[in-house]
Simulated scan of single mutants.
Amino acid sequence: MSEIYCENLCITYSQKEILHNLNIKIRKNKITALVGSNGSGKSTLLKTIARIVMPSSGSVYLDGKSIHRYSSQEVAKILAILPQSPEAPQEFTVERLVQYGRFPRQSFFGSLSPKDYKAIDWALEVTDMQDLRKKRLSDLSGGQKQRAWIAMALAQEGEYLFLDEPTTYLDMRHQIEVLNILENLNRTQKKTIVMVVHDINHAAKIADHIIAIKNGRILTEGNTKQILDEKIIEDIFGVKGLIISNRIDNTPLFFPLEVSYV
């Protein structure tokens, strides 16, 4: 399996430093959650690792070589990224959208092969979208649309799946559906997942490793029990609260109480 890591990564926009000297190794076959307050740099970090943003200095490495030395098609065969609020023509069917995930692997003539159709069927199946494959995007709920986009990313058959706040704008039920799909992909398919997460409890639910970003720097990183600490969360988000225990499996959850002005 390919290895992705960052060394001394810096991003600067209009002379403003967004990310500073980050060193990160993506853990294979694990779910990594990037957390932090708005403007902390977590989405920029995700895009930089995925080769969408060019670093000002430092490098992202794919198998020991700068990721920017690979072609876009080569990278797309290894990782898929699902941005916030992706867009496609609303008259597209789910199946047509998912077919676009095969683009990096299609032949020069662009026709779909039996292998392509098999990958498309698999992506629709694992996202529970088989029965909706002929539905237009305009006829789907928000949760169904997000599952369709995840299916498109999965159709690329990359080793890595990157997602930028995949549960944003979804109601509670659809948030849980999406998180369950991602967790199942990791546990059963060994898919390596890196995602920006808005809700610390969502990160706690499924992530093996959490990286907390603050002001463009890594504040701390670790597993759920290490990160879900009242003082650490106050440092990350500026919110005071209590750590409570999930009575089903005794995993920690954060209950917010008030804004911290320290």
Rank of each mutant, 00 (worst) to 15 (best):
A155V: 12
S59F: 10
T32C: 04
A212Y: 09
N184Y: 09
G143A: 05
L219G: 11
V126C: 11
R105T: 08
I26C: 02
Y261N: 10
I81L: 15
G64N: 03
S111W: 05
K47S: 05
N8E: 13
A88K: 10
N246G: 07
A207V: 04
T167R: 05
V262T: 14
N201A: 05
Y100R: 15
V259A: 13
V262S: 14
S2C: 09
T48E: 04
G110Y: 02
E91Y: 14
R187H: 03
I233Y: 11
Y13Q: 05
V75C: 14
H68L: 13
F109N: 14
N21P: 08
V94G: 07
A148Q: 10
I200Y: 02
A155F: 10
S85E: 14
L9P: 03
I218R: 09
R27F: 05
E159V: 00
M1T: 05
L219M: 11
E258D: 13
T93H: 09
K77L: 00
H68E: 00
I206R: 13
G39M: 03
K47F: 02
L219P: 11
S14M: 08
P104F: 12
T188A: 06
F162L: 15
G238P: 08
R102M: 06
S141H: 03
E3C: 13
V194Y: 01
I236D: 09
V262A: 12
L22T: 11
R187A: 07
K134Y: 10
E258K: 14
K231G: 01
G216T: 01
M152E: 05
L257D: 00
N184W: 02
T167D: 01
P83G: 01
L34N: 12
E221L: 06
E3P: 06
N246T: 09
A212V: 00
V126S: 10
V53S: 06
G41I: 07
S43E: 00
D229C: 12
A203S: 11
E7D: 04
N21C: 13
I232C: 09
K30H: 14
S85R: 07
L132K: 15
F162N: 10
K115M: 04
E234L: 01
Y70W: 11
V94A: 06
S2R: 04
K240G: 04
L62S: 08
L46K: 01
I150T: 03
E125W: 00
D121R: 10
I233G: 07
T48P: 01
Y117M: 14
D229R: 08
G158D: 05
D171F: 01
E165W: 01
I193P: 04
N184H: 04
Y5R: 15
D208R: 03
T127P: 06
S138M: 07
F108N: 12
S57P: 06
K30Y: 11
L257C: 12
S260M: 00
I211M: 01
G158I: 11
N201H: 07
I4L: 14
K47M: 03
L62I: 14
T251K: 14
D171S: 06
A203K: 00
